[in-house]
């Protein structure tokens, strides 16, 4: 696993300290709760235990029982109650212990939370966050990437960061946003990557992608853990003379079309890499955007490297076969570059 390619949004250096992805998330919650008493945290085992991954460790001691709320195992109740709190001007953060369990609250999120502003002018400023993604042998119910269920839901915003800098800045932006924001934290990154975060307060804008590596021969679009995989593949491609431009989407909804189009108009080829399963993944949406708005700029087919259209299998041999990796990205990119 390579290090995040620079801490800042464009790889710029910062004068902060090196922190893990997980520490960045914890800092964001801590600082937002410190800044605004309307921010509270709610979820299963987030208080006394500090969260299943220790993401909220120390928050209970600092902010007290009223603001760090251990709940029953009731995802619909957590989301519903947070929605009610947001109607009263609070800004609750809900933790899904594993993001796989977010579907237990699917109705509450997609029908109640997401539609309120459109239908009856009721903003629901709340964040739903939790550990997602595979590669850690969590099996079919602790490895999911359910982001696209929600990208298909108008009214939500969906964030899936790849670096500690972005995780902290985007989570702070999510807490301050007046809309319901889903914040996916790839658990493979929690303790495996470190990056610099600035000492002071900062946010990263929601809805803005970033170019992680500049190139001219093709564009690789990715996000979350696969962004690192894509960078690794780009390094290997560079040794063969293929300069890949790597885009980190960071936000999936709203999607930053401008950054995507600018890059593809330059490189004329596009490869999308995501850990989500292939059918119905964000690659399909990106393909549609390119066909609508950059058809004449394309010199080759849009290529997808994604997980298999299966549940996430448990055995390491199976899961490794299921997931994309740098080698698969490398081969697909090399093939695409020949056009």
């Amino acid at each position: 696993m390579p290090k995040a390619n620079g801490a800042g949004p464009n790889g710029s250096a910062s004068d902060g300290t090196q922190v893990t992805f997980l520490e960045a998330i914890k800092q964001a919650m801590f600082e937002e709760m410190e800044r605004d008493p309307a921010v509270i945290l709610m979820g299963e085992d987030v208080g006394v235990y500090g969260g299943a991954f220790k993401t909220s460790e120390g928050l209970l001691e600092r902010f007290g029982w009223e603001r760090v709320i251990d709940t029953p195992i009731s995802e619909s109740a957590i989301i519903g109650a947070a929605c009610g709190m947001s109607y009263c001007g609070l800004r609750p953060i809900c933790e899904m212990q594993f993001i796989d369990f977010i579907v237990c609250a699917f109705n509450q999120i997609t029908n109640f939370v997401a539609k309120g502003h459109y239908l009856w002018n009721a903003p629901a400023p709340m964040v739903i966050r939790g550990p997602s993604g595979g590669g850690v042998h969590g099996g079919p119910f602790h490895s999911a990437n359910p982001e696209m269920y929600f990208v298909h839901t108008p009214g939500l915003k969906v964030i899936y960061p790849s670096t500690p800098y972005d995780a902290k800045g985007l989570l702070k932006a999510a807490v301050r946003d007046n809309n319901p924001v889903l914040f996916f934290e790839h658990k493979f990154l929690y303790r495996r990557i470190k990056g610099e975060v600035p000492a002071g307060d900062y946010t990263v804008p929601i809805g803005k992608a970033v170019v992680r590596r500049e190139g001219k021969h093709l564009t690789i679009i990715s996000y979350a853990a696969m962004m690192h995989t894509s960078l690794e593949a780009a390094d290997a491609l560079a040794k063969e003379g293929i300069e890949a431009e790597v885009i980190d989407l960071r936000t999936l909804l709203p999607l930053d079309e401008e950054t995507i189009l600018n890059s593809v108009k330059k490189t004329n080829k596009c490869l999308v890499v995501h850990e989500d399963t292939r059918t119905g993944g964000i690659a399909g949406e990106i393909a549609a955007i390119l066909f609508e708005k950059a058809f004449h700029d394309l010199d080759g087919p849009l290529v997808r490297v994604a997980s298999l259209d299966t549940p996430v299998p448990y055995a390491p041999t199976l899961e490794e076969h299921f997931l994309p990796n740098a080698k698969k990205v490398f081969s697909a990119a090399k093939e695409l570059a020949r056009y």
């Binding site: 509270i40 009223e66 603001r67 009731s74 619909s76 109740a77 957590i78 989301i79 519903g80 109650a81 947070a82 929605c83 009610g84 709190m85 947001s86 109607y87 009263c88 001007g89 609070l90 609750p92 509450q108 109640f112």
Partner: peptide, 13 residues
């Protein structure tokens, strides 16, 4: 649960 949340927020505030 939504009205539970409103009740909790009202108490908190």
């Amino acid at each position: 649960p939504v009205m539970t949340g409103v009740a909790m927020a009202g108490r908190y505030l």
